Simulated assay, not measured.
Amino acid sequence: MLRPATEEDAESIRRWRNHPKVRGASFTTHEIGVDEHRAWWDAISADLTRRVLIYERAGVPAGVVIFVGLDAEVTEWNKYLDVEGLGEDRSAAWVELEYEAIDYAFDVLGVRTLGAATLASNTPVLRLHQQVGFTEVRRYLREVDGEPREVVWNELTPAEVRRVKGM
């Protein structure tokens, strides 16, 4: 289940984001401090073109989904899980979160095209994107920790979701 994030979720989001596995797959890999996170939270909470949602698994907060650019032709999204809290259940949660977030984007938010930037080295996420119907649009280099890293940009439309689901 996805629900809007609240002030009470802010510290959990920071803790999840600071897990070494999450940082290692991110474009900014440093540990996020309280003040930096507070500034981000205040800005994103006030921005009507962004949404932060909490993913709950069996009624327990277990991850976050962030949509950016809700007023744009292509809305970018990213997500991460409570790696420590989910433990071995993480793989199933990734798949569930992917499908729930896609449905939410198109059915609730009315997104026209969903875009995702993923490090090329993050092959499990790229495979999952491909499985649900995302199309690779381009690859490019982006600096991460002072080093150029290859990024894959994927996009998904409601028509592709229907095709994959056989509708």
Rank of each mutant, 00 (worst) to 15 (best):
V161P: 08
R139D: 09
A58T: 01
I44D: 03
V111K: 06
E150R: 02
T6S: 04
S12G: 11
E8A: 05
P61N: 01
L119D: 00
A116P: 05
A46R: 14
A5C: 06
L156F: 07
W40G: 10
E56I: 02
R23L: 15
V22Q: 07
S121R: 05
K165M: 05
N154H: 10
R15T: 15
V68D: 15
I66D: 14
V164D: 06
H129S: 02
S26P: 15
L114W: 08
G146E: 05
T28Y: 13
A5F: 04
W77Y: 13
N78D: 15
L109V: 13
A101V: 13
R138N: 09
T123G: 04
G24V: 03
M1E: 12
V34Y: 04
L156G: 07
S12W: 13
L128E: 12
S26K: 14
A93H: 09
V83A: 03
H37G: 01
V164W: 07
R14H: 03
D145C: 04
L81V: 12
E73T: 03
N154F: 03
T118N: 01
P61Q: 01
I54Q: 01
D107C: 10
R38L: 14
E7R: 04
V152T: 13
V60F: 07
G166D: 04
I102D: 02
E96K: 03
V68Y: 07
D71Q: 09
H30Q: 15
E143M: 12
P4C: 08
G24W: 04
L2I: 11
T6I: 00
E136D: 02
A43G: 12
G110M: 14
E155T: 06
P148E: 13
G87Y: 04
E88K: 01
D71M: 09
Y55W: 14
T135V: 06
V164R: 10
G166Y: 08
V52N: 05
N18P: 02
P20I: 07
A120Y: 05
N18K: 02
D89V: 10
S91Q: 06
T135W: 03
L2M: 10
F106A: 05
D35G: 07
P158W: 00
H129K: 02
E98W: 02
A25E: 06
V164L: 11
V137M: 10
R14I: 06
N154M: 08
R51Y: 04
L70I: 13
T29K: 13
I44Q: 04
A5D: 04
E31L: 05
V125C: 11
A105P: 15
G69V: 14
I44G: 01
E136N: 03
R163H: 01
R139L: 09
G85K: 08
L156R: 06
F27N: 05
T49H: 15
N154A: 09
E150I: 00
V22Y: 04
V137K: 08
L141F: 13
E73I: 02
W41Y: 00
D103Y: 09
R50A: 15
R127N: 03
S26L: 15
G69L: 12
E155L: 00
V125W: 14
R38S: 12
L109D: 15
E11P: 01
S91A: 11
E155F: 01
A93T: 11
N154R: 09
R3N: 06
T28G: 11
A25N: 15
L48T: 15
H30V: 05
